[in-house]
Each structure stands twice: as structure tokens, then as C-alpha cells.
Design a protein around this nucleic acid. Structure first.
Length: 423
RNA sequence: GGAGAGUUGGCAGAGUGGUCGAAUGCGGCGGUCUUGAAAACCGUUGACCUUUGCGGGUCCGGGGGUUCGAAUCCCUCACUCUCCGCCA
């Protein structure tokens, strides 16, 4: 979340920045500032009152030690009012702190100055494009190919679990595993440390990265144990650093993790969810980075370039979009989406989203860095998909289908150990 | 799932009602000594809120209670460990 001190100091700037998201946050911001003012005033009162009570207690202690029991008892009698006031102020302060936290949690991150204003995906800005976005003459969508070559069994997945939980079979399963291994190897080469995190997270972690309090409808929940299935590896990996003060010398932290991801995707329908386009369970390799504030914008460019490198090796045509304010996630300050062109469906498929959250997550997580001078500051967190598997698979199948067979890109052959998929 | 033990500063580990934010050791930082380093010695060393500053306040797993006063007593929750059960 945004720091209240920052909001207080830059009220107008914050409101102006949030307008890029096509929202007017004036009321929310002013309410937070008002709550904070009352909070601080209450804090001062409580502090004064506590100081007084502490003093009196010490005096009573001294009297008892000196054996002056009658005087001590007399002093005791006078403490009732102080105590009552303390309780009252304490309750009020806690209430205000809760309100402030709620108010701040409801304010999204302020977009970076380079983010275009806009309402939805129509206002996103295409930054660059690579490769030819040409339709396959066969124009065969991947759900036909996966059936024809027996790569994915959607039907049996429905029986076992439900729609959106496919079963990968034979070369389909091998392709999946090859891609994961390829992505992890690439990341390691680029300096990322691999982690295998838990697939379930608690509520504190959900709050830290911004899924909670109000995006819980997106996650599957194990209510008996108050745990959530991760919607992305971003959540457990970033939260590894929750409540920490990192040494500046340990930055940047670069982690990569492969995990299955679980998303309820309530409300999705139609061609968007056909085949591999949108699943409830899917595999993803995620890169997570923790950076010094003055380097994070340089870093996000590197991360995007890194992901582009993966797509180039897989020989997939893609474009890079800079998301407009209205299309960005709640917690992000800058997001690039990478989309590949799917030759069978003749549409762009999002395969990666790379974001800089600045201090939005680190504020929530209390993730700080201790500088060389001993001063502490909030770290910047970033992450990106590198890459999400299903749509990559869809693209590979559709784009490399020559009417007879599917040709595996050269970079992947050492991993699949086969060069083609055919009947 | 059953029984028991525990949770204190970066770490280890004292502390059972009144200058305890907390002994001591290790680690870290600064210094003395040394050509340099080590050793030794001396000093220093937590986080947070509030305040322009001085200062004040909070924090001994979380929450609640008893008390003039709680790291210390009571309740409750979470977590960790040990043993038993179950189990890949």
C-alpha cells in the first residue's frame, strides 16, 4: 500500500497519478489523511497519559519499598481515572489504526509517470513487436491439435476435477516438462536462484502481495485450515522476504520458481476459456526480484528483455505492451504485458506480465533494506512470468503446425528429445 | 489425532510482580596495540510510533485479563520441539 506519510506529503500528486487509472481518489485520499490526523493526535494524548501513569506507579513502588504503606495506598486510590482514560484512548487508537489500514488497503498503487492514462486494454500502448504475426494457412486452433495428436485430455480432466483442469498426456506431458526445464535453465543462466515454494499460503502472505483483503474470490481456499492455493508463485516467493530488514549488499535478490498456479477465474466464458486459453490450474515459471529503488526501473526493462529472449528462442512472434493505468493490476506501478500471436486462433495471447510494484508490496510486507549508512528504506519488488505455460504450448502447436505435424523449435529439442509431433 | 515441553534482542541464553528494553556470551561496528593481520583490551551495538527539536510512548510469539505496577500471575489462540498413533 501507499505509505500514509507519502500521501500526506504529496496529496495532489497522488490523486493526479491515480487519475491515470480512470478513478478519482480524492475522497479516499482525504479520508485517509483525516483518519491519520486523528490517529496521531490520539497517539500523543495516550503517550502523555501513559507517561503520567508510569510515573505514579514508580512512585507507589518507591513508597512500598520505603515501608510507607499508607501513603502508597492513598496514591493507589488516585489512579483509577488515569487507568480509565488509558483504556479509552487505547481502544480509540486501535480503532483508528484499523480504519487507516483499511482505507490505505483500498487505494491502488500510483502509476509511474510513463504509464499512459486509460480505461481498459484498448488504451494500452504497443512498445514493440518481433516476428511476423501471420495466420497459419491451416488455421487450426490448438484444441483441435491436442486432440488429433493426443497431447491433452480435457474431457477426462472434467471428470476428475472439472473444466479448466486438463490432463497432459504423452508428448503433451513431455513438452510441458521440457518447457519448464528450459525456462528454469535459462533463468539460472541469467543469475536467478531457483526456489520451490509452498503451493498454499496463509492470509498474511495474501495481504503482503495484495491478493487480500478483497481479491480472495480469485483464489481457491482451504477454509478448514485458512489457507489459499497460490494464484501465482509471486505470492510465496515475494513473501519469503516479508517482515525482513535486508542488508543492502544482498540486493538485488533474483529468484525464479516453477509452480502450478490455481485461479478460480469466476465469470470467465466463451472463446477466452476455450482449450488452453484460460485454465483453473496451469504451470508457470516466475521471476521475482527485489531491488533498490533507484534501480527498479532499469531492472524492469531488463526483465522484459529477458522474457523476450525466451520468446525469441522459441521462435514465437510477439508484441510488448505497456499497460495503461486502467488495465494495470491494483498493486502495480508499471506493467508490461507480452503477447504471442497465435496462428490458429489469429489472436494475441498474453503469456507474460512483468511489473514493478515499487514500495507498494514492501510497505504491506514490511520489507526493508538497511543501507550502508545504517538508514532503512523500503525495497522495490518486481516480478514477471517467464513464462506461463499453457498459452506458450498453444502458440507452439498452432504456429508450428504444417498440416501434417508439429515441428519443435530447435532450442527446445534438447529438452523434448523429439523434433516433431505427428500422428 | 493423543500426551508433554517450549516461544526473550542478529544468534545463544539468564531473568517468576516494582529503574528489565532486559544479565552474560557470541556475532557486528569503532578504537588502542601492530609494518599488516590475529589475539588481547576499551567502547559501542534492536525495532516501531509520535515530535521541527528536546523529549515522550510501545514492543520479551499474537490477543485478552488480574494489578497502582507484568517478560514474570491467569485465560485464549498460533507456532515450534519431543514421544505415541497414522502415513508417501
Amino acid at each position: 500500500m501507499l505509505a500514509i506519510a507519502h500521501i500526506r506529503a504529496h496529496r495532489d500528486k497522488v490523486i493526479a497519478a491515480l487519475e491515470k487509472r480512470a478513478i478519482n481518489a480524492t475522497k479516499q485520499i482525504d479520508e485517509a489523511i483525516a483518519i491519520d490526523e486523528e490517529r496521531r493526535a490520539t497517539q500523543v494524548l495516550l503517550d502523555q497519559n501513559l507517561a503520567e501513569a508510569k510515573k505514579v506507579s514508580a512512585e507507589i513502588g518507591a513508597l512500598y519499598k520505603a515501608g510507607k504503606h499508607e501513603e502508597a495506598n492513598a496514591a493507589k486510590a488516585k489512579t483509577g481515572e488515569l487507568k480509565a482514560t488509558n483504556q479509552e484512548l487505547d481502544a480509540k487508537l486501535k480503532q483508528l489504526e484499523r480504519s487507516l489500514n483499511d482505507a490505505l488497503s483500498a487505494i491502488p498503487n500510483t502509476p509511474h509517470s510513463s504509464v499512459p492514462a486509460g480505461k481498459d486494454s484498448n488504451d494500452n500502448e504497443e512498445v514493440r513487436r518481433h516476428g511476423e504475426a501471420v495466420a497459419n494457412p491451416q488455421a487450426t486452433p490448438h484444441w483441435e491439435l491436442t486432440e488429433r495428436f493426443k497431447l491433452i485430455d480435457f474431457e477426462t480432466g472434467v471428470k476428475i476435477t472439472g473444466a479448466g483442469f486438463p490432463i497432459y498426456t504423452g508428448k503433451g506431458a513431455k513438452l510441458q516438462r521440457a518447457l519448464i526445464q528450459f525456462f528454469l535453465d535459462q533463468a539460472e543462466e541469467a543469475g536467478y536462484t531457483e526456489v520451490i515454494p509452498p503451493l498454499m499460503i496463509n492470509a498474511d502472505s495474501g495481504f503482503g502481495t495484495g491478493q487480500l483483503p478483497d481479491k480472495d474470490g480469485q483464489m481457491y481456499q482451504a477454509t478448514e485450515d485458512d489457507l489459499f492455493l497460490i494464484p501465482t508463485a509471486e505470492v510465496p516467493i515475494t513473501n519469503m522476504y516479508r517482515d525482513m530488514i535486508l542488508d543492502e549488499a544482498s540486493l538485488p535478490i533474483k529468484n525464479v520458481g516453477y509452480t502450478p498456479c490455481f485461479r478460480r477465474e469466476a465469470g470467465s466464458y466463451g472463446k477466452d476459456v476455450r482449450g488452453l486459453n484460460r485454465l483453473h490450474q496451469f504451470d508457470k515459471v516466475e521471476i521475482v526480484q527485489i531491488e533498490k529503488p533507484d534501480r527498479s526501473y532499469e531492472t524492469i526493462e531488463h526483465m522484459v528483455k529477458y522474457v523476450e529472449g525466451l520468446l525469441q528462442q522459441l521462435e514465437l512472434p510477439y508484441r510488448v505492451l505497456k499497460l495503461c493505468g486502467g488495465d494495470m493490476g491494483f498493486t502495480s506501478a508499471l506493467t508490461y504485458d507480452l503477447e504471442i500471436f497465435s496462428a490458429g486462433q489469429e489472436r494475441w495471447l498474453e503469456v507474460s506480465s512483468v511489473s514493478n510494484f515499487e514500495t507498494y508490496q514492501s510497505n504491506r510486507m514490511k520489507l526493508r533494506v538497511k543501507g550502508a549508512d545504517g538508514k532503512k528504506y523500503q525495497a522495490h519488488t518486481l516480478n514477471g512470468s517467464a513464462l506461463a505455460l499453457p498459452r506458450i504450448v498453444a502458440g507452439l502447436l498452432e504456429n508450428n503446425f504444417d498440416g501434417e505435424r508439429i515441428v519443435i523449435p530447435q532450442a527446445l529439442v534438447p529438452y523434448t528429445k523429439f523434433e516433431t509431433i505427428q500422428a
